[in-house]
Each structure stands twice: as structure tokens, then as C-alpha cells.
Design a protein around this nucleic acid. Structure first.
Lengths: 153, 153
DNA sequence: GATGTATAGTTAATATGTAAACAAATCAGT
DNA sequence: ACTGATTTGTTTACATATTAACTATACATC
């Protein structure tokens, strides 16, 4: 369904460019809401799951520093402080000292690893289900289009 | 540039599906940041601009109710309360009584209309500039792909 | 007309995001 | 070795978003 229909607008959108922009925006909002609902039964938010997945898949033995996490999540350093605070309080990560004493290395706890054992493959399946609405060619075209847009920003 | 490069990942992403999803997500984040910076000189956030544009273009003589705004912005009613509070405090909108006394009809002030006179066309130009990285055909394919994804959610 | 149901807006608690200012630690160049 | 610049993480103040519980109003049906 077109955005115009979904939002019950009486007028057409201004331009195809604008429609494409809003399409991206509203689709991402909808995807985030879907992810939120998906992770609720695991006691996680989508952002918390993302942070934990980054450590699981890219943290190696040491974990990741908060600065590296903020870079990978494309968010401010200050935001990661709060995210790690809440995950630490929930018993999912711990802050560990590094050689360079400016860094906190963030590591997953056993509890987090156990939760991810279930949540990770389940989410993978869910992503497949949603995105396979598009053919492989369409998926690749979407990736390329997004890359072009990001390059222009 | 690929997401893998942008985020400086050492490993490939899990699947094309996942890459497409993350591409959408990170592109929208980048677009929102770009919009934020664009509106800062006007003393507006991107969300505030959006809300005001909806009233300008779809509010007619009466303005829009908060419930209708929440529907068009795909956000919770409770969120609109805060948005309107802040815009009212800034002198950009006013709450007006409707026949049905459950409704607040939100209208633009003269101050808001004056700001939008500049911000609206300037933003239109900016959107063209960013999105015209894609051909019209690519834009339409992007719109279609987004519609298919939203239909699956 | 009374009653039950639905809708609109607000409030409170919480999560996520930003920018700016700060302290502590490290690095670079002399 | 010292000095100045940079980097990391935190704090504060704020904007945006959610859910749940609440009030006020309107509607539907008997």
C-alpha cells in the first residue's frame, strides 16, 4: 500500500524524491516497532539486542570499548554510557578494565550468552521472513540505493 | 561505501537480508541527522518541522487533532502531547477547541507560517539534492521495495 | 434517559538519542 | 621530560518515543 493510503492523506506527496525519503523513514520506524515486539518476550529492547550482538560477533575475547560500540551503532558516546548502565544493571554485560585505562571493555555475561543462544537464531529467521518479500536482486538494489544516499550525506 | 566498510567490521554481515535491513536502518539514521542539522538554523527539530508541515499541507482551515497527527506521524498519542507542548511554548502552534470537546485542534501561529515560508522550500530543495543521487527509476523501485516490506509487518 | 463502550488527551515511569562541559588518561612534538 | 592536543567515559539538560493508567467526552443500545 502506498504511504498516501497508509496515512490516509487526501493530497499526493510533493515529489517522488520526497515519497522515497518518507518511504525509507516510515519503513524503518515500522521495522523498529516490529523488532521491539519481537524482543519483548526475551526481556530485551531492539537496541539492547543490537549492542549485545555486536559484542558477540565482533568482540572477540576482549569485548568492545564503549567508543567502538558508539561508532558501530552510529550513536553518541554519551548514549552508550546509559545503554551499558542499563544492561549492566540487568546482569547482561560487565565493564572490564583495559590496558589503556581510558577504556571500558564491555563483555557479555553468561546470562547474556544464554539469552542470545535463543534470540540470535530466532531473529535471523525473522529477518529472513520479512526481507524475503524482496527477491535477492531487489535486496541488492535496495542495499545499493541506500549506499548511494548515505554517500551523499 | 558498504556498511561493512563504514562500520569498519572485520567480518561480513550474516546475510544479504540482514545487510538490506541494516542498510535501511543506518540510512534513515543518517538522513535524520542530516535533517536535524538542516533545521537547527531555523530553531526547529526535524520532528517539529514535520508536525508543522502536516498541519500546513493537510490541516485546512481547522488544523489537525492530536490523534490525527499521531496517526500521520505513526507515533503514540502520548508523544504528540509533548510535541505540541513544546511547540506551543515556542509560540509555533496553538490548541483550539473543537465541536467535539474531546479534541484539540492544533493550528499554526503567524510565527510558524513565517518560518515555514523559508524552511519549506529550502527543505524541498535539499531533499531533491540528496535523493536525486538516485534515478527516477531507482527512486520508484525504492518506494516499491519499502511498500513490500511494510506490507509484511 | 441510563448504562456500557469507545475515543481523545494527559500523566508518570522508562528507554533512547543529542550536545556541551568536564575529568582522567594517553599521545605527539619539541 | 614537558607541554599541548586528543581520546574516553561521564554528567547534565533536553527532545523524542513507548506503555499503562487516568479523566473527560461522545456514542450506541436497551
Amino acid at each position: 500500500m502506498s504511504l498516501k493510503e497508509e496515512l490516509k492523506l487526501s493530497k499526493d506527496l510533493v515529489s517522488v524524491e520526497h515519497e522515497a525519503l518518507l518511504g525509507l523513514y516510515y519503513t524503518t520506524v515500522a521495522l523498529k516497532k516490529h523488532a521491539s515486539e519481537f524482543f519483548a518476550p526475551f526481556g530485551l529492547t531492539d537496541v539492547q539486542f543490537n549492542l549485545m550482538m555486536l559484542i558477540k560477533h565482533h568482540g572477540g575475547e576482549t569485548g568492545l570499548s564503549q567508543a567502538r560500540l558508539s561508532e558501530m551503532m552510529m550513536v553518541n558516546r554519551a548514549n552508550v554510557t546509559g545503554l551499558v548502565d542499563r544492561l549492566e544493571k540487568a546482569g547482561m554485560v560487565r565493564r572490564t578494565a583495559a590496558e589503556d585505562r581510558r577504556y571500558n571493555m564491555i563483555q557479555l555475561t553468561a546470562k547474556a550468552k544464554k539469552v542470545l543462544e535463543k534470540a540470535d537464531p530466532a531473529y535471523g529467521t525473522e529477518v529472513q521472513k520479512v526481507m524475503n518479500t524482496l527477491s535477492k536482486a531487489e535486496q541488492k538494489a535496495l542495499i545499493k540505493a541506500c549506499e548511494k544516499i548515505r554517500a551523499k550525506l
